[in-house]
Amino acid sequence: MTGAAGGRGSRAYGLTIETQGLTKRFGQQLAVNDINLAVPPGAVFGFLGPNGSGKTTTIRMLLGLAAASAGTVRLLGMDMPGKFQEVLPHVGALVEGPAFYPFLSGTANLHRLDAATRHAAPATRKARVSEALERVGLGHAAGKRVHAYSLGMKQRLGIANALLSPRELLVLDEPTNGLDPQGTREVRNLVRSLAADGTTVFVSSHLLAEVEQICTHAAVMSAGRLVAQGPLPELRRSGTTGIRLVTPDTGAAMDVLARLGLFPELAAAQSDGGVVTAALAGNPAPEEIVAHLVEAGVRVRGFAVERESLEDRFVALTGEGFDVAQ
């Protein structure tokens, strides 16, 4: 058994989350189709995909809320849902939005959920609850009924619930839903600080920018399938790069680029010039391109080598972009 706080340095498992052939079928529909997730310890793992691509269903199976139609789940090196009594106390979760008893105060709600955890020490409950509330900035509203909370406050309370005990793994399903930009930034900082302490964080999101900023690893779901997975730099590297040229001589520039074997496109045209882009395939080097352009008398006002953004890459992977899956 891995202790929550003390055993961090001596994890007895290779992967924090490991699924093999995980599949969920609802009637005829395959919601999750044969996915093999591998989340290493200590990672901040972004779980991306359009709405309806199977992220939440996967999370439900990870946590034992729904039974897998096929495949296995191991959390913290133990089988789920078989060992849920040993696993889940070390796992904090925010699943498909926060949910609370509207007629209870924030504090009372957390007390209730902590009481539901068989192993949570009643003696420290009060302290842990108020600490968690402070941590998400709800100290002032702790005594208010959740009924009167805004969506953002409920979201914070949900995160506070995930932090009630020391955790080895946090599963956060769309943690910034309903939060204002300030709240979003706070969640990012919180995730960073938790990760710095060694907690593995599994964040699902359909907002790529969010994930890009905090994650070390990512996986992409599309229509129930896992279409990419790995460390973020690796995912980025497999994307293409391109150049972006600002010049008044767009026609001449495109001729030069075409002669160099590139496929230039006029990205923006104005009366006094425009922007030309082209994908880069290694040869020629960017500096050579500039030399050729200048040689040909093209007035270069701006030149940049741009890596394809992760978003472009993911849109390419998921096909439909970040819209609802068909």
Partner: peptide, 25 residues
């Protein structure tokens, strides 16, 4: 605010680890 303080619950609850035997609660 979400101050990046020490791990929540790690302080003052050394015996509160979930791995401990059920405490009859």
């Amino acid at each position: 605010m979400l101050p990046s303080s020490a791990r929540l619950g790690a302080s003052g609850t050394p015996g509160a680890e979930a791995g401990a035997a059920p405490r009859g609660s």
